[in-house]
């Protein structure tokens, strides 16, 4: 039987959740026995090559590209998992959710100490190739259906490992108290 296929991505995240996945240490060798990776920063495959069994999503949705990638993951993955606080509730990027986008952009590109004298034409990024920033940062489950949630900043390596093993083997997931944390 073919191995289950896993895809991963980081949307508006910091790659900390991916680092935590690598924190399973030598169990990475067992992981490679258990699953294959498709589109993921771990193997640097940029496009989906087939339908995947499990998609791991790090980060929330802060721009149009994030929404596009997330919808592609929903389409190509049978099970989608929100990994980490940003995917679940927007995380630190969502601190801007109470500030109008115009104010955020003005602060970043017009008024900050490093830009106020360096941007005389008061240009805000508006190239077609740059994704549009959304009005606020959205939790992933407000954009597509998410099947499972793994909290943490980052989720403990053991939590990600236990979840992957449970999903692949179909056994009930172990949830020791120490591995479910919000920070």
């Amino acid at each position: 039987m073919a191995k289950p296929v896993v895809a991963t991505t980081s949307l508006a995240g910091c790659f900390g959740c991916h680092m935590s996945l690598l924190d399973i240490d030598d169990r990475i060798l067992q992981l490679i026995e258990l699953v294959e990776f498709d589109k993921s920063p771990i193997d640097d495959i940029k496009q989906f090559s087939r339908q995947c069994d499990i998609g791991l999503i790090e980060g929330g949705v802060c721009n149009s590209e994030n929404a596009h990638v997330l919808k592609a993951f929903r389409k190509h993955c049978n099970i989608l998992v929100s990994v980490g606080e940003c995917a679940i509730m927007g995380g630190l990027p969502a601190l801007r959710n109470n500030i109008p986008v115009g104010e955020c952009l003005a602060e970043a590109y017009l008024n900050s100490p490093t830009t106020k004298n360096a941007n005389p034409n008061k240009i805000l990024p508006n190239d077609d190739d740059i994704p549009m920033i959304l009005n606020r940062v959205y939790p992933c489950h407000e954009v597509v259906k998410i099947d499972y949630f793994l909290p943490g900043c980052p989720p403990r390596a053991d939590l990600i490992w236990n979840a992957l093993v449970a999903l692949v083997t179909g056994k009930e997931m172990e949830l020791p108290y120490e591995v479910v944390k919000f920070d």
Partner: peptide
Amino acid sequence: QALAYRFKLMAPRFEYEFSQ
């Protein structure tokens, strides 16, 4: 947070308000 841990809350079922 500790009560959320105790009740094994993985993610709230309700929409975040992001209240002002």
